[in-house]
Design a binder for these strands. Sequence first.
RNA 1: GACUUGGUAGCUCAGCUGGUAGAGCAUUACACUUUUAAUGUAAGGGUCCUGGGUUCGAAUCCCAGCCAUGUCACCA
Length: 485
Amino acid sequence: MNYQEINRIKKLKKIKLLGINPYPSKIYKINYNIKKILNNKNFLINNNKILIITGRIINIRNMKNSSFIDIKDYSDYIIQLYYNINNLNIKYKNNKYYINLFKKYLDIGDIIYVKGKLFLTKVKEYTILINKIILLSKSIYPIPNIKIKNNKIYYKFKNKEKRYRMRYIDLIINNNIKKNFIIRTLIINYIRKFLNKINLIEVDTPILQNIPGGANAKPFITYHNKFKKYYYLRISNELFLKKLIVGGFKGVYEFSRNFRNESIDKIHNPEFTILEFYIPYKNYIWMMKFIKKLFNYIYKKILKINNINIINFTNKFKKIKFFNFINKYINFKINENTSKKKLIKLSNILNIKINKNYNKDKIIDNIFNLLCKNNIKSPTFIYDYPKYMSPLAKCKNNNSLLTERFELYINGIEIANAYSELNDPIEQLNRFKKQNKKNIDKDFIKALKIGMPPTVGIGIGIDRLIALFTNNNNIQEVILFPQMK
RNA sequence: GACUUGGUAGCUCAGCUGGUAGAGCAUUACACUUUUAAUGUAAGGGUCCUGGGUUCGAAUCCCAGCCAUGUCACCA
């Protein structure tokens, strides 16, 4: 415990001795928040409005018989409070009481309830002249102090490790942190609204799974005591949603928290959110158009509250075939027929390290990741992926080596992955077998055998999407409590 | 997993070629009736990430470890 904390615990005892409960319980009605006050300054002054607000103290300037206190509330705005001994309620006019309570025992970090009127100080700062103040919660642990001049913040809390581990302090101290998370929720709500409008059903599918399917990643393993059986935290919900399409829903979606036992970087967290949705009787061409509409809709909504400087979604989305795209950045022409031998040769020429165990999909993916994808800035659909890279996608009508699949890239980052779903059970089983997986989800195959209508499905990386819409290049900034060791 | 940069007061950071720790804000005390990065005077506050080693002497040099930043690999 540090000395500041010890000091405050002493204060806490003295406050209690004064007969004040430092952690009271009541309903505290407020009639304004700080943002609203600052937006209606003139009205409030002209009408002599009595303001009742709550907030956290972030700075105190004490004079002999008066004080200035800066408080911040949930609106993330700051306002100055002023009190003078003469302006306080009769109850507080006893000098000793006033000095003890307000001058000595209030600290940065305390949460207070305040009643007063707005006025303009000599230095032209809009300020609340308060006549009533109630301590709602005493702060014991010192938070970093903030100094503000001309709207510039001079002292920050910017150590990333501390910010993420103590997000509550980050949210108090740093501006726009809360805003990022509010935007996150807004975007998710807008997506819901958009999908509900076309009558998709939001569903919940199991997080604990027998067989971790629908993607290729290391799962987290857990254990059920009664069943004496290992379970896996889902790496994807894809197969379950398709089972629901077999079951006859008009279309389903789920914001799925997925878990992958891999390492962490700018665009990966061990637990992350993917929106998946599946719509029968549509295909991937339809989905491209739909995604464009969805992103435009979100963009317009968010633009009203936040500048998005990373990308402009109102421009046309680009569209380019997978192999055409790759061929733009290498001096060779490759396509779905190019043999593994040639691809290995090519990798050597391009100075791309490859492992002997690598399959064709892995080699191509390396070329794509290292030489091509970073050239994508504006939203671009890469489409018609080779079959060997897409075990769950349906083949094209005129070419059985390509699939009806696209990925949406923005700023070099994969945001979405979609395909016309493979619904031929025999072929699906064969493709699973080719993957040499230990566990094949036979139940999923059974569902396909019963018959799944032609369906399009997509997965959208929500954390990455939110990062884009909040001008962040790291998803840790849009995950409230990112994973830390 | 590899490399990179870092870990010093509540926060942000200095600390050179080794000589047992500094600043600003925060804290405490006093002064001050409208300040605003309030001000003035004084004071207190440190397991220098951990463990070894070198040395008369280590925050500093060396080794190992822990945690984090960034890049890469893994994540089709």
